[in-house]
Each structure stands twice: as C-alpha cells, then as structure tokens.
Write a protein that binds this DNA or RNA. Structure first.
Lengths: 250, 250
DNA sequence: TGGACACTACATGTATACAATATCCGGCAA
DNA sequence: TTGCCGGATATTGTATACATGTAGTGTCCA
C-alpha cells in the first residue's frame, strides 16, 4: 500500500495502526494468524514501540484478539457474529434516536439532517444509480448516521455507537457498496432512505419508541444484505473485512 | 493501596493498570488532572513502557481521556453521563436477555442461574440485612448478571456489555453497597431480585420482548439509587469512582 | 504597562538494547 | 512407535536512552 503524503505529519503509532488495519481488512493477514511484531515492524516501517501501541488499539477496536501467552492474532468472525454486531449497532442507534426524541431536537438541530436527507434524495432519484452515486450515498449515509447519533447529546452513548460501528461490516454504510451490483439495489436504497425520513419525523414529534424501533429495523437492512452477499460469495472486494468472516463449514 | 501478593505473578502492564485504576477511582488523581507518565512511573514502580500501555488501556476503558497535544487526563462525568451509562448498560443487557429468550435456553443452561437465584433469596430473606450480606449480594448479583449475558451466546454482545459495565458506577452491582445504608434498602433488593426471577422466567418461556423490557427496567433501579446517593452527598466512599462525577454547579 | 517573542525546561513520542519466557524440534527412553 | 524431556531459537515483555514538540516563563520592546 502506497504511503500517503499526509501520513508524514501524523505519529508513527497512527501510521502503523492504519497500515496494519489495511493489512488485516484486506485479508493479507489471514484470520487466526498470529501477528509477529518484528514482521509488523518490517511492513510498517515504524519501530516496535509504536507497533505494539497500534496492536493494542486494534485489539480494542475488535480486529485483533490477545493470545494468552502473549501477542495478538487476527480475529475471525462467524456469520452469526456479524449479524449480532449489526443488531447491536442498530440497538445502540435506536437508543440514540430515542434519546434524541425524548430530549427534544429543535428545528435548528434538525435542519442539517434534513438537508442531508435532501441530498440523499437527489442521489436515489436517478435510475439506474451509477457507481459514483453509490459512493456519494455511502458518504452521505455515514454523515446522516453520525448526526443522528450526535442528536442524542450523550457522550457515553456516542462513544459506544462509534465502537460498535468500528468493524467495517457492522458500520451503517458497510454493505451499501456490496449491494450496488444487486438487481434491486435501488429499491433497497429507497427503503433505507424512507426509514431515514421516518426516524427524523419521529424525533421531531418526540415519538421515542417509534424512533427507536425504526432505527433497529433500519440496521436489519444491512443484515439482509450480508446474507445475500455471503450466499453469492461474490463482491468480497467491495467490503474490506469480509475476509475475516469464516463460513459455517470452514 | 497495599500491593497484593498475586500482583507479583502478573505483568508490569497489568500491575500498572490496576494501580492506576485504583488511584483514579479513589479520587487520588483528580478529575481533569493530567496524568504525568513520569509521576505514574514513580507511583507504580513499573517503567514507562508498561505505564504507557496501561494508560492506553485505561483510556479504552473510559477512565481516561486523550489530550490532543499528547498524554492523558482523568475523565470527568456529569450526572447525566452516569445515568446514560446505566441506561446503556441496561439496554445491552436487555438485548442479551432477548437473544437468550429467542435462541432458547435449555433447563440445563438455566440451572446454574436458578441456583444463584436461590442463593440471593437466602441473602435477601434476612431482615435486617447485615453488611456482610450486602457484600454477598454484590458478588451473587455480579455472577447472575454475567451468566445472563453469557446466555445470549453472542461474543460480540458479551464484549460490549463488559465494556459498558467497566465503569464502576455503570456496573450492575455498582450502587448496591451505597444503598446499604438507606432505610428501604431491603425493599429495593427484594424488587431487584423479583426482576431477576421474572427475566429468567421470560427467557425460559422464550418471551423475548418481556425479557428485554425487564432488564432495561432493572438497570433503572441503579439510576434511582444514583440520584439518592448524589442528593445525600454521602457514602461516597462506598462506590469507588463516585469521585469522578462532577455535580451540576461545579 | 501590556503584549509578543524567545528561551528553557519538561513531557511525550520513538528507537533499541536487554531479559524473560514460550515454542518448537530433536533425541532418548519406555 | 509414541511420549516425554531438554535445549536452542525466536518472540514478547521491560527498561532506558534519545529526539521532538509543547507549554510555561521571563525579558525586552512598543
């Protein structure tokens, strides 16, 4: 992976973390494989201290698992693990939406979300949707989800949602790119966008239970896409991290 | 704090982490205060490398906050933060209970929980309840909650519940000791224990929604106790970590 | 007298040397 | 042939020296 110019300015620890994360998510480091510090030192260019730091952070992130006797290995996930992670993220986002509704969000607070909503409408309106448009959707979707979580105004909750979304296949935008090749891709996006609209409406009207339920169901769209992708066993390249999923028989 | 004999066998990193955690929770290190590595090296006896390791882990644990320019400071929590953390923990435990109910738990699985339930009954039956009995309750309660979470059979969820319970004031047994001095202490324990019984019954009968709702409500008992404790501004010593809570006016 | 700049001191980020320990392989004995 | 023991090797855990950047303080100039 080519070193980006911006990497120069940041710390070795961060650089090592980014570099190792890429290696793990791309599947270059196999699931279950032990990560040798010395080897990581060679590939990242940093010395052992920042590499160790990066390994600890990647463990907390959920990508690595500590080996009892020392060191780390790449974590493997079952299909069930992934589905549970998505459900978990949806539950936390649901809680955030409920908090937002119960605590009230002024029209000033909601204005940027509605603008984001409109932008997504612009993307989804085209038929068929171009690959570029899918990319735009991913970015806008991520922004909308981040803003919805922020609306809870609960730092502890925001923190946990971020952690739950750290795994790429559990993140709100994880499976968007993978579904871009599916025949009913646009329909799915329309449905998801409708859920966006409904949850904001619910928050505006202080309907906590409704907002929570919708966000939970919204996450399950991703779970559905996961199943489709795993069935087809294709487009694995569109979502980094899919290499970490161990299928039932393996 | 006296070093325990068992500390000898574990790594310097873990030793430093335990030592620093105690220092933070006891309030010896003030909220907002920057933690100097050198100072930490002196107090813990370990060298800088394991100390830094411990600091990173304590940040992930939620006790420390990274300073943009480098280093860490002790995190401060508002009353709202604490209440949200409890609600968060309850929500996750609720999800675990729902999973347990939906996925089914055999009577073999439930047997140890019921035994634990009986043991708690034995503790709660006495009137008045001794301080020792409160301690027993804390241990049994922690075990029961751990077993309930395990019943979800979802490693990602178990992981998140553990993280959410890491903050002492968010943990299931956090406020039990603080309420030991309250006049209606026994009644509260009885109510909590009844919720334990109900949630296990719900899981047994595969009533997912009911199990989830009860676990959420169960956590709110802790939130009530928090408010009582903060009102009285007493018994701060009974729950380490209470020193981290900054009251509204401060 | 106030502000800005420079210098100093100190704290953190990084690299590396050293120590302890786990793992692996080979040989020996049952 | 299999299991166990022991040593060699490699890997991680720890300590410390060095580099770099930040913050604080004092002085000088306007």
């Amino acid at each position: 992976m080519a070193e980006r110019e911006s990497d120069r300015s940041v710390s070795q620890t961060v650089r090592a973390q980014l570099s190792l994360r890429d290696l793990i998510l791309s599947g270059d480091l196999r699931p279950g494989e032990r990560i040798s510090e010395l080897q990581a030192v060679e590939t990242t260019g940093a010395s052992r201290t920042p590499v160790r730091m990066a390994l600890v952070r990647l463990e907390e992130e959920g990508l690595l698992e500590a080996i009892p006797s020392g060191g780390f290995m790449v974590k493997t996930f079952s299909e069930r693990d992934v589905i549970d992670s998505i459900e978990l993220r949806g539950t936390l986002e649901g809680l955030a939406a409920r908090f937002a509704a119960e605590r009230g969000a002024s029209s000033r607070d909601l204005e940027p979300l509605k603008r984001c909503l409109d932008e997504i409408d612009g993307v989804v309106r085209q038929d068929p949707i171009s690959v570029d448009a899918f990319s735009s959707y991913v970015a806008l979707n991520a922004r909308l989800h981040a803003m919805l979580t922020e609306l809870s105004r609960s730092p502890p909750l925001i923190r946990q949602v971020d952690r739950a979304s750290a795994l790429p296949f559990a993140s709100p935008s994880g499976f968007v790119m993978t579904q871009s090749t599916l025949p009913d891709a646009r329909d799915t996006l329309m449905i998801a966008q409708d859920q966006h609209r409904v949850v904001i409406d619910a928050i505006e009207n202080r309907e906590g239970a409704r907002a929570e339920a919708i966000m939970r169901e919204h996450a399950r769209v991703a779970a559905r896409n996961l199943r489709l992708v795993l069935q087809k066993k294709t487009h694995f390249d569109l979502l980094p991290g899919l290499a970490l999923i161990r299928m039932a028989g393996e």
